[in-house]
Amino acid sequence: MSKAVETDWLTIVRSAGAKVGLDVDQADPIQVSENAIYRLPGCVVARVSRPGQLAAARREVNVARWLEASGVSAVQVVPNVDQPVDIGGRAVTFWRELPSHHHGTPTQVAAVLEQLHRLSIPASFDLGEVAPFIRLEDRIEAAHGLSDEDRRWLRAHLAELQQRWEDLPKGLPWCVIHGDAWVGNLAATDDGQVVLLDLERTSIGPPEWDLVHTAIKGTSFGWITAEQYAEFCDVYGHDVTEWEGFELLRDIREFRMTTMAVQAASNRPALREQAERRLACIRGERGPRPWSGWKALE
């Protein structure tokens, strides 16, 4: 059996930088997994995608430029650089490095979402519609530690959620949404800026899809207090839990978080207990919400 070929991330970054005239001699890795992030001189960060993501990277670059022009504080691409750069099927993009920062707060998320959701839909490029089930089948297939019975249940539950989505109740008007709006995707810098991160899921969809992420932090997991959630609703001006479609979006979000854990546990045994806990919860085996013991995947 032949050995798997290890990705030469540094060569990819240097090749892309050379194509667009950026200094890549002192590229230092920040994170390397199925994709990679490198720090370059001049407060520049290079991101290398997994294969086949050129169109997605191009759209993310377009979103970042559009948000900057629209006055929404979000992560910014390096200006005057023709990107993404295609290196052997991997998309490389270049971003301005953020100053020292920490996670935002629920109220900061609410303020940014209220601004984002008021924007007119861009005419210069196609954002596409929200894809709430993207990669979920792949996650289930990649979760090698699942029993056959658990895998069958996950597939059946996914099919049920997809059917329920077809009958999503009417809510707020569809608009530009972030797609993965939680405190970890909002950077609060030490100099007082609040910056929206991770733009790859930005699309057209129900604004409730963004709001439910914070709502379940309280109703499903007890990660935030009732007072914190009330402040979130006050800042945004709407409580998604009062909408008849809330339970569906909640269930999809919980399912996404569970499949992420069961896939990750396939290669990281330390996460197996967390994956099993999440699966038991959404199967109704751990009683009513809020459930205890859900923890961030480290």
Rank of each mutant, 00 (worst) to 15 (best):
E166L: 13
H178M: 12
L186Q: 07
C175K: 11
W174L: 09
A187S: 07
L161N: 09
A187W: 01
V176S: 06
Q163I: 08
N185E: 11
R164S: 14
G171V: 01
A188I: 00
P173Y: 10
V183M: 05
E166R: 11
L168E: 08
D167Q: 12
K170G: 04
P173K: 09
D190C: 02
D190A: 01
Q163D: 15
R164M: 10
Q162W: 06
E166F: 01
A187N: 02
C175T: 15
I177C: 12
L161E: 10
D167L: 08
N185R: 05
I177E: 08
D180G: 12
W165P: 02
L172Q: 11
D190I: 00
T189Q: 02
Q163Y: 09
G171L: 01
Q163M: 13
D190Q: 03
G184H: 08
E160Y: 11
W182G: 11
K170P: 00
A159S: 15
Q162Y: 04
V176N: 02
L168D: 04
C175A: 15
D180L: 12
G171D: 01
G179Y: 05
A181M: 13
H157N: 15
R164G: 12
G179F: 07
K170D: 07
E160D: 14
E160N: 14
L172A: 14
L158A: 09
R164N: 09
L186K: 02
H157I: 03
L186R: 02
L186V: 15
L186N: 01
L161P: 10
Q162E: 15
A159K: 11
H178V: 08
D191M: 00
I177Y: 09
V183D: 00
W165M: 06
E166M: 10
Q162K: 13
L158G: 12
D180W: 04
L168M: 08
G179C: 11
A181I: 10
C175Y: 05
T189E: 05
P169A: 03
A159D: 14
A188M: 04
V183W: 00
L158Y: 03
V183E: 04
L172F: 05
Q162P: 03
W182F: 15
P173I: 04
A187L: 01
D180F: 08
A159I: 03
Q163K: 10
N185I: 04
D167Y: 06
K170E: 13
D191G: 02
G179M: 07
G171M: 01
A188R: 04
C175R: 13
W165T: 05
K170A: 14
K170F: 05
L158P: 03
Q162M: 14
E166W: 02
L161C: 11
E166S: 12
R164P: 10
D167V: 06
P173C: 07
D190K: 00
W165G: 05
G179H: 05
W182Q: 12
G179D: 12
A188Q: 05
T189P: 00
P169G: 01
I177P: 06
L168H: 04
L158M: 14
T189G: 04
V176M: 09
D180A: 15
A188F: 03
L168Y: 06
I177R: 10
L186I: 15
D180H: 07
L161R: 08
N185P: 01
G171H: 01
H157S: 15
W182K: 11
P169T: 01
E166G: 09
Q162C: 09
E166N: 10
I177T: 14
G179R: 02
C175P: 00
D191F: 00
Q162A: 14
A188D: 06
L158R: 13
